[in-house]
Design a protein around this nucleic acid. Sequence first.
DNA 1: TCTGGGGTCCTAGGACCC
DNA 2: TCTGGGGTCCTAGGACCC
Length: 422
Amino acid sequence: MIALVDCNSFYVSCERVFRPSLEGRAVLALSNNDGCVVSRSREAKALGVQVGQPYFEVAGIVAAHDGVALSSNFTLYADMSHRVMRTLDRFSPSVLVYSIDEAFLELPPAAVAAPADWAREIRRIVKRDTGIPVSVGVASTCALAKLANDRAKNAPDGVCVFGDQAAVEAELARTPLEDIWGIGPRLGARLRLAGLVTALQFAQASDDWLRRLMSVVEVRLAWELRGTPCLDPGDVRTVRKTMVCSRTFAQATMKFEMLRESVASYTARVAERLREQGSQAGLLQVGISTGYFGPAAETYSNRVLVRLDQPTDYTPALTAEAVEGLRSIFKGGYLYKRAEVMLAELSDKHVRQPDLFRPEDPVALAKQDRLMTAMDRLNAEFGRDAVRVGSSGYRRMAKLRQANRSPRYTTHWDELPVAKAC
DNA sequence: TCTGGGGTCCTAGGACCC
DNA sequence: TCTGGGGTCCTAGGACCC
């Protein structure tokens, strides 16, 4: 048996832990630049606010109902997530962190006899020790646990256990196929066109037919719904294969220099994460785009792949390549809104394939490593960007629009919550 | 006026090999 | 008129997830 533990309205719940006055009110957590809604409380959901919806569309109705919209505070959310996951470790020897607010747990033998009791206990302890409310779904496969969790969200005790396969099938018969984990809008539309409506019809479709219409992914999914495990949810703590740093600008720009500074600083950011993982990158991609919502003549987006001579984690080398790449795709006369830097073909830093025609200089490499180590340490101690490459510019990074960000209560000494005893 | 950021996996098709 | 068979590797693009 597998359990999926999912935090309810995770970002909003993080905010509520430190501001109990937000309980019972419509609360939104917004994306960068206060652009979109990324998390909403039950009360906000009742007002019709959708996840992913542009904030300006709902700002009026939320304000009219005494609601609150908070700018994203990912530092806080990441730390709270860590606390929740560490708490879950007490309940199972096998906890697979699937996303910032979800984890799959294998049921320990002692829990199998009474899974619902075990799940309720998880809920109670996580709430007690972190302040975060969670829902728990238990079933025989990941895809079913996901669905059970969905049902748990509306259960009075926040728990849902899928038992024997007959009960599961009855549940699937009531479930539209779009509710299945892994069936998105495109596949959903294609399946409907083929005459399928419920999750049960999908689960009982023949493998051959599914394989012909879609791909092996959907065949596995059908097996999962029939109760045969086929999915490995992976583990967020395992090694990344690609890394991206991208931002939408608060202020659009036509200037190459502004883009260069953004690209250089995104490269520095992503390279820092690369070194943290102990990897080096063999491929770099840089991309820029205007907004997508303007008239077609005013939109432009392009990206370029740069193969690195030798895999590296050295910020100045990566930055130089990224800026060269940017130069090759930049076109004047457009108002740019977004830039992106991606590193790929990540490999273990200590596994090197020397180039026959360009022998490495071990002394120079060791020097680069010492420089990066020193830079990372300084930035960790004195704040991000305390030390940076010159091409990322000397002005403050183009600021994000964050009208209403809460303090980073748990990770910054000068932002600790204050309790008053009267 | 105002629309996020970071990932994974799979497939088809092209280029190349013998 | 008729034009083999079996592979690998790479990339772009599509789909999904939170």
